[in-house]
Design a protein around this nucleic acid. Structure first.
Ligand SMILES: [Mn+2]
Ligand SMILES: [Mn+2]
Ligand SMILES: [Zn+2]
Ligand SMILES: [Zn+2]
Lengths: 137, 137
DNA sequence: ATCTCTCTTTAGAATAGATCTAGTTTGAGA
DNA sequence: TCTCAAACTAGATCTATTCTAAAGAGAGAT
């Protein structure tokens, strides 16, 4: 796991306590938090980050490519510091959103695609279903 | 293309001029309209559908499965009357959202997936890139 | 050490998409 | 024709996000 300071510096962003804390939190969670969940978590112990700064920072990190927006639920915007190619699974019962390994689906970027999409920037598979935990209850 | 009246009736929904018009419009467009675009189009000639009714109707149609929500852009909620399995392509330059044929990616629902997702309800591939039109300009 | 300039943070106002409310209209069935 | 539940409506409300304008912070210059 790369140090947040290094990542921020590489992108030419000043290292501030708020940016450091937000990026570090996103790096260490797997829940793909919403902006509200980021605010909640950061200010749980010691309030030090305003609502506006969380939104500003998330947008800044997204602009420089350090986090990705995950937009597969109506009205819910999540953030993901895992920027390696991967897929997502959403449980329709509990709402959990999990990573799926990139290699799970083989090579998706093949010839036939270029008819409609000559330049591919990103491919992602979204799987909706019921997770193991929800199935067994 | 199935008649909207028949689809509504099958789902036990009353056939109203508003529901008929909204479903018919969605059936005949390929742009995956937002709620605002539905309102705009329906009231272009003869205003007859309120904002609240468009939202109510879209939610009703979604609840009975006659339309799907398409939620792949931050803050943008689109509607799709094509409920056959298919994938989507989004052009990062012009924002166009197009259907991709289901058969384009072969069988995605294979054994390895069931480890994390024992019950699969839906699989969809999202491709982001540059469309032919935007590439050639 | 002080100044300066730019970037960052902040509280609160504003915006916009979606939902809710309460009253009205509609039409199928008695 | 009457009744009643479902559907429609205008406008109020809600809520996630963005905007605004002012304060803070820090790197380099003097
Ligand atoms: Mn992820
Ligand atoms: Mn579609
Ligand atoms: Zn679950
Ligand atoms: Zn394009």
């Amino acid at each position: 796991m790369v140090d947040p300071s290094m990542l921020l510096e590489r992108k030419g962003l000043k290292i501030t306590p708020q940016r450091y804390a937000i990026l570090k939190f996103l790096q260490h969670t797997t829940i793909h938090p919403t902006a509200d969940e980021v605010i909640e978590q950061l200010n749980r112990d010691l309030p030090m980050t305003s609502r506006a700064t969380v939104y500003n920072t998330l947008n800044t990190l997204r602009d420089v490519g350090l986090v990705h927006e995950v937009t597969h639920e109506a009205g819910v915007l999540r953030y993901d510091a895992n920027i390696d190619p991967h897929h997502h699974f959403i449980c329709s019962q509990c709402g959990k959103l999990e990573d799926l390994d990139w290699k799970l689906f083989g090579n998706l970027n093949h010839e036939a695609l270029s008819a409609q999409c000559p330049v591919v920037e990103n491919i992602e598979v979204i799987v909706r279903g019921v997770c193991r935990h929800c199935r067994n209850r």
